[in-house]
Write a protein that binds this DNA or RNA. Structure first.
Lengths: 410, 410
DNA sequence: GCATTTTGTCGCAGGCTACAACAAACGTTT
DNA sequence: AAACGTTTGTTGTAGCCTGCGACAAAATGC
């Protein structure tokens, strides 16, 4: 349901059709999993001969392969299954959060092949230490990949504002970074001559949940992730909402309580001050800097039904609902996905959220929106970073061999 | 600066290239005005021969025509100017606001050829009366069109929530409508066998300002229009943000003042209660229902520098800034366009807005966003409705003759 | 084992643009 | 005024890509 007017359209040459159709096929098996060739014919609307040629080309590129489909009992010649060559085509997905870093190999098709996480203190951390950590984890991951495995790129989810044009982390307040050229540092340290793409962890979490998670296949998704800070991302019309500088989705700092508390950002009454980790600990009379341990205590108390913790959760949910209501009125998502800390407290806050939405969201939208917990959990940003890294290949599969690098060469 | 991953891609046939390239040419002269054929070659990246063939086809369809370009003093063979046949190709643009209706003929290229407005009381108005009014105005407009003029469609901007799939106005609180099949009613009453498209006035205002107004050519625009209610629209990545049901952009009801006033929508502290017409009148100690006359008085007082009106404006601006800050943090627009009442009070509120944004918007965005008044003024929703009506032709120019209807035939 | 159904394959036709060579129309220079 | 250089429209050929129709292949069911 869009105003389908296209923006400035550059001219197309006839080869663009081939490229677009290769993308359609590869994207199908990447996102929807293995399917038969005749499924692809239906999905794309192309003819059997066209799909045949396209599948052949992708198989030549070693991106997909065909297998005999198990006879399903139908009459007629069986159509071979087309599936992504997951284990021979991977990207590295990395994650730089406030209190952890992680590296994973993600196969074409979205399979998480190997994951290595490493917790770290919440102190401010110099960038080169982080780069060293990431490289160490990356070596652990690549060492265990099969010999004939090709690596196509690196995607990095960062808990901060990222300038995508040159892969610089402009600000990562909770990590203490400022104008860190993370892309360049990684590229020099990794010894892997593949393209590196950075993205905001909230944006990439949203991407992952809308592709493979709680909102799989949905085109209008709001993802809210409460970690130390509150981040999020918006998928609208199937595309990530990026904004003019790529900074869209800074939902932690929408003003919701004008008479509220001072936020780390300098303003008063940001949403983060009411729904962040600190707010929950405050309401439960715990030390606001108690970190993960304190949160775990709170969750245990909540599960036990402790009266004042349950009340704190209700209040937390009320503020969650207030902020969500505004966002829903602006964005009209079909689904709101709650991740991070918000996923963990979901059962205790969902009722107060729904009550608040019932009051504050315009009727047409309040009946259609659903609020659900994340299903990808902590893996969401990693899987989103992988999607980001795959983008180049998916948009031009014919050029795959130009980007493929042997995993063991590093 | 987008995460350029495309959503589900259907297969393309080779004719899609022609269609896309025709669109590129027609869109160029529609949006950027007349330009030479060699300009089109540069703009599209196509070859001279391809552009030649495309321009020839569009001229055959009577959508564009070529004129000898005035010799610019350069050496070389002069390139003919290509321009839209504005006066032979029009759409009807209609507008249903709370206290006025309007109809215009808008030529290809966006020229406002004829406009007829009609004010009306702010009472609730039955839909068939409005339809009659629109038809009367439409006859006045079409009667004065040239004889050989073709009409391609009707676009309607409505101050309410619109379901675009079947052109039904779900709710228009200030007009008192509920589930009105306006598209169907108009289609029966107009006796014009052209497609009708409805859109929300805020969304269409945003579209117009981002195409031909204060944010012309910009891809990430937030448009806020304070009329009786507060509406708005978002252009993101060059596309109108629509949301899952097409209801996105209901920015009047984001919660900003949790201890504030009861809104007509039933919630407390909606933005509309702080920046709407009623809020301004309240702060100036006027009757909240004084309507346009009272607003005019306030503006005269403000221009005269009356102390308490200026103070009221400052407070109005502060709340404008608070709400805008949240929206900017979420959407990262390059430009915020203020329309309707907000355009008229712009000079008196802009400083308080800027001050508030300075505190509340994240650093990376606050330095890049600009807040400007509308340049299309009251015509913005009409011009947006016209863009909506042109959409079909722009996306498939070769089918133009299938949709063209003689203006005098009605 | 034969009919039926479904699907892959092959050759030809149609549509579209790139490319290169040529022609046309301008200003400039001699 | 004529020759020259420059820019641009035009024309014909080649290359790319998909649709279409006919045929072959591989399954089920009687």
């Amino acid at each position: 349901m869009t105003y389908g007017i296209e923006p400035r359209t550059p001219g197309l040459r006839s080869e663009a059709v081939r490229q677009s159709n290769l993308t359609a096929i590869l994207n199908s098996v990447h996102l929807a999993g293995a399917m038969s060739r005749s499924d692809l014919v239906i999905r794309t609307g192309l003819t059997r001969s066209a799909v045949g040629a396209l599948v052949f080309e992708l198989a030549e590129l070693d991106l997909i392969h065909e297998t005999r489909s198990p006879s399903a009992g139908n009459p007629g010649r069986p159509s071979p299954m087309v599936q992504a060559r997951t284990d021979q085509n991977v990207v590295l997905a990395m994650e730089v959060l406030v209190d952890s870093v992680a590296v994973a190999a993600v196969g074409l098709g979205g399979t998480l092949l190997r994951v290595v996480r490493s917790d770290r203190p919440r102190d401010h951390m110099p960038a080169n230490r982080t780069v060293q950590d990431l490289c160490r984890l990356a070596r652990q991951v690549t060492a265990r990949l099969p010999a004939n495995c090709g690596v196509f790129g690196v995607g990095v989810a960062v808990a901060g504002l990222v300038r995508r044009s040159d892969n610089v982390v402009l600000v990562a307040p909770n990590i203490g970074w400022h104008d860190v050229p993370l892309g360049q540092l990684l590229s020099e340290a990794l010894h892997l001559s593949v393209p590196i793409s950075l993205g905001n962890d909230g944006d990439l979490g949203a991407l992952a949940e809308s592709r493979r998670g709680a909102a799989a296949g949905l085109d209008d998704v709001l993802y809210v992730s409460g970690e130390v800070g509150v981040g999020g991302g918006v998928i609208s019309g199937g595309r990530a909402l990026s904004g003019s500088g790529g900074f869209a989705g800074e939902i932690g700092h929408i003003p919701v309580n004008i008479d509220g508390l001072l936020c780390k950002c300098g303003a008063v009454g940001c949403w983060e001050t009411e729904i962040g980790e600190g707010a929950l600990l405050r309401r439960c009379a715990k030390l606001p800097n108690g970190g993960r341990a304190a949160i775990n205590e709170v969750l245990i108390d909540a599960a036990a039904g402790e009266r004042h913790v349950v009340a704190a959760m209700r209040e937390q949910g009320r503020w969650l609902g207030i902020g969500l209501a505004g966002l829903i009125n602006v964005l009209d998502p079909s689904t709101v996905v709650l991740g991070g800390l918000l996923e963990r407290i979901y059962p205790y806050v969902v009722d107060s959220i729904r009550a608040e939405l019932q009051i504050r969201v315009m009727p047409a939208m309040r009946d259609s929106v659903s609020v659900v917990p994340s299903v990808l959990g902590v893996d969401a940003p990693l899987l989103g970073a992988a999607e980001l890294a795959w983008e180049r290949i998916l948009n031009d599969p014919a050029a795959a061999n130009r980007w493929r690098v042997s995993a063991t060469a590093s």
